[in-house]
Write a protein that binds this DNA or RNA. Structure first.
Length: 104
DNA sequence: CATATGACACTAT
DNA sequence: AATAGTGCCATAT
Protein backbone atom coordinates (compact mmCIF):
# COMPACT_ATOMS: atom_id res chain seq x y z
CA UNK A 1 0.00 0.00 0.00
CA UNK A 2 1.36 3.38 0.81
CA UNK A 3 4.65 2.66 2.52
CA UNK A 4 7.56 4.41 0.90
CA UNK A 5 10.86 3.78 2.60
CA UNK A 6 13.17 6.64 3.45
CA UNK A 7 15.64 5.17 1.03
CA UNK A 8 13.20 5.21 -1.88
CA UNK A 9 12.08 8.71 -1.05
CA UNK A 10 15.66 9.97 -1.25
CA UNK A 11 16.16 8.15 -4.53
CA UNK A 12 13.18 9.93 -6.06
CA UNK A 13 14.32 13.26 -4.65
CA UNK A 14 17.78 12.87 -6.17
CA UNK A 15 16.36 11.71 -9.49
CA UNK A 16 14.21 14.80 -9.73
CA UNK A 17 17.35 16.92 -9.58
CA UNK A 18 18.76 15.52 -12.79
CA UNK A 19 18.59 18.34 -15.36
CA UNK A 20 16.80 17.82 -18.64
CA UNK A 21 19.12 16.48 -21.33
CA UNK A 22 21.47 14.98 -18.74
CA UNK A 23 21.79 11.57 -17.13
CA UNK A 24 22.92 10.12 -13.81
CA UNK A 25 23.86 6.60 -12.80
CA UNK A 26 22.37 4.25 -10.25
CA UNK A 27 25.65 4.27 -8.36
CA UNK A 28 26.14 8.04 -8.20
CA UNK A 29 22.60 8.43 -6.92
CA UNK A 30 23.19 5.83 -4.23
CA UNK A 31 26.39 7.53 -3.16
CA UNK A 32 24.77 10.96 -3.19
CA UNK A 33 21.98 9.99 -0.84
CA UNK A 34 24.36 8.31 1.55
CA UNK A 35 23.78 4.67 0.69
CA UNK A 36 27.16 4.09 -0.85
CA UNK A 37 27.33 1.20 -3.26
CA UNK A 38 23.58 0.60 -3.23
CA UNK A 39 23.27 0.91 -7.00
CA UNK A 40 21.17 -2.19 -7.23
CA UNK A 41 18.81 -1.04 -4.53
CA UNK A 42 18.37 2.25 -6.39
CA UNK A 43 17.29 0.33 -9.46
CA UNK A 44 14.75 -1.54 -7.40
CA UNK A 45 13.33 1.64 -5.96
CA UNK A 46 12.99 3.22 -9.40
CA UNK A 47 11.38 0.07 -10.72
CA UNK A 48 8.54 0.50 -8.25
CA UNK A 49 8.47 4.21 -9.04
CA UNK A 50 5.12 5.35 -7.58
CA UNK A 51 5.69 8.79 -9.15
CA UNK A 52 6.11 7.58 -12.72
CA UNK A 53 5.44 10.84 -14.58
CA UNK A 54 6.81 13.26 -12.01
CA UNK A 55 10.17 11.55 -11.54
CA UNK A 56 12.47 11.53 -14.61
CA UNK A 57 13.57 7.97 -14.00
CA UNK A 58 14.50 7.65 -17.68
CA UNK A 59 17.54 9.82 -16.98
CA UNK A 60 19.11 7.13 -14.82
CA UNK A 61 21.49 4.77 -16.59
CA UNK A 62 24.23 2.31 -15.76
CA UNK A 63 27.71 3.36 -14.67
CA UNK A 64 29.05 1.90 -17.91
CA UNK A 65 26.92 4.19 -20.05
CA UNK A 66 24.51 1.44 -21.04
CA UNK A 67 20.85 2.29 -20.72
CA UNK A 68 19.88 -0.21 -18.06
CA UNK A 69 16.18 -0.91 -17.73
CA UNK A 70 12.81 0.74 -17.72
CA UNK A 71 9.46 -0.34 -16.32
CA UNK A 72 7.61 0.81 -19.46
CA UNK A 73 10.07 -0.75 -21.90
CA UNK A 74 13.58 0.18 -22.94
CA UNK A 75 12.48 1.60 -26.28
CA UNK A 76 10.31 4.08 -24.43
CA UNK A 77 13.18 5.12 -22.22
CA UNK A 78 15.46 5.69 -25.19
CA UNK A 79 12.74 7.61 -26.95
CA UNK A 80 12.37 9.93 -24.01
CA UNK A 81 16.12 10.47 -23.76
CA UNK A 82 16.46 11.29 -27.41
CA UNK A 83 13.56 13.67 -27.04
CA UNK A 84 15.67 15.59 -24.51
CA UNK A 85 18.76 15.70 -26.66
CA UNK A 86 20.52 12.65 -25.26
CA UNK A 87 21.64 10.52 -28.18
CA UNK A 88 21.62 6.78 -27.76
CA UNK A 89 23.46 4.35 -30.01
CA UNK A 90 23.74 0.58 -29.68
CA UNK A 91 22.19 0.62 -26.24
CA UNK A 92 24.60 3.21 -24.90
CA UNK A 93 24.52 6.95 -24.23
CA UNK A 94 26.59 8.96 -26.71
CA UNK A 95 29.19 11.14 -24.97
CA UNK A 96 28.12 9.53 -21.74
CA UNK A 97 30.81 11.12 -19.58
CA UNK A 98 29.92 14.52 -20.92
CA UNK A 99 26.17 14.12 -20.41
CA UNK A 100 26.66 12.66 -16.96
CA UNK A 101 25.34 14.88 -14.23
CA UNK A 102 27.18 14.89 -10.92
CA UNK A 103 25.15 15.91 -7.90
CA UNK A 104 26.34 18.85 -5.91
C1' DC B 1 15.80 -14.13 11.49
C1' DA B 2 16.79 -16.65 6.68
C1' DT B 3 16.26 -16.76 1.73
C1' DA B 4 15.25 -14.86 -2.73
C1' DT B 5 15.12 -10.99 -6.00
C1' DG B 6 16.72 -7.29 -9.23
C1' DA B 7 16.07 -0.93 -13.90
C1' DC B 8 23.81 -2.62 -10.71
C1' DA B 9 29.18 -2.69 -10.48
C1' DC B 10 33.62 -4.63 -10.73
C1' DT B 11 37.25 -7.97 -11.87
C1' DA B 12 39.08 -11.76 -14.28
C1' DT B 13 39.21 -14.41 -18.33
C1' DA C 1 35.61 -6.11 -26.86
C1' DA C 2 32.48 -9.67 -25.02
C1' DT C 3 31.33 -13.09 -21.31
C1' DA C 4 31.18 -15.04 -16.84
C1' DG C 5 31.67 -15.05 -12.14
C1' DT C 6 31.46 -12.60 -7.67
C1' DG C 7 30.21 -8.87 -4.60
C1' DC C 8 26.80 -5.41 -2.87
C1' DC C 9 22.49 -3.40 -0.99
C1' DA C 10 17.74 -2.46 0.30
C1' DT C 11 13.13 -4.96 -0.09
C1' DA C 12 9.79 -8.53 -0.16
C1' DT C 13 8.13 -12.78 1.80
Amino acid sequence: MNNITSFARQVYAATKKIPRGRVATYLTIANYIGYKGAARAVGNALNKNPFAPSVPCHRVVKSSGEIGGFAFGLSEKIKRLKGEGVEVAKGKVVDFKRKLYLFK
